[in-house]
Amino acid sequence: MSDNNVEKDDFTGVETTGHEWDGIKELNNPSPRWWLLVLLATIIWAVGYWIVYPAWPTLSGDGERGGTEGTFGWTQYDQLKESQAEIMARRAAYLDRFNTASFEEIKANEELYAFAVAGGASAFKDNCATCHGTGGSGSAGYPNLLDDDWLWGGDVDAIHETIRVGVRGEHDETRYSEMPAFGDMLGTKEISDISDYVLSFTSAGDYDGPGQELYEQQCAACHGMDGRGIRDFGAPNLADAIWFYGGTKGDIMSQIRRPKHGVMPAWETRLDESTIRQLAIYVHSLGGGEE
């Protein structure tokens, strides 16, 4: 504004910019000094940031990881490790003993047992509740974990194993069983007879019909002569009135004709051993756990 003919505001004596809107003229005041200093300080601060924190990609060679590392050597991954270490240190009071103790020892130790049940309950909500229900009561096709009807065994070791390897999953040691589709081998009449006999396990009165012989030929090898199932084969108990895929005659016929097979993922690949052990103890504690 070195022009000689600049206009000055009469009242303040400050130069105007020469712009006028409806008789109001803009004063050409400089930015406040404090504001300018803050701006400059933040610019200098940013340069400091580049130096101490990871900031810029670099011209590293192909296939190499690049970027400036910063003099502090800070990474968000180290920060994560530190915060994890902090919580692990708090858990360590229990975790060290928990990891080395057997299930019997944990059961006998009130403190460790409470720790396991609390940890298991928390992991259950994140990982198991989506199928087995928030309270563990299951739904059609997903077993109820509150009762004493277990497909693969209900003691802590068996539950632990089921969680670890899953059922019909992708784990090498996964629990596996597959009922054949009897719709390919038997006619509707025979399937209907077998269903009547299966229903007779849980209803009053004696069964007298052709279904018994067919059952003993076709089904008893896995489900047992008395229909109580055989856990080694994952064959469900048919005599306890607990039905996985429905208990009407139609449901049973459909399951004989073309059985549904549920899949439970293996959790060994997702959760650490300590969490799986906590889950096993928690599920065992829900009500139906066996000794």
């Binding site: 990982n127 989506t130 199928c131 739904s139 096709g141 992708e170 899949v263 993922p265 690949t269």
Partner: peptide
């Protein structure tokens, strides 16, 4: 991936509340 079974995904896509009531 691998957290739930295929059957779960089928049921969940058809009617999510069948497997997760809330």
């Amino acid at each position: 991936g691998g957290k739930y079974s295929d059957l779960w995904h089928i049921q969940h896509m058809i009617r999510p509340q069948d497997v997760v009531p809330e």
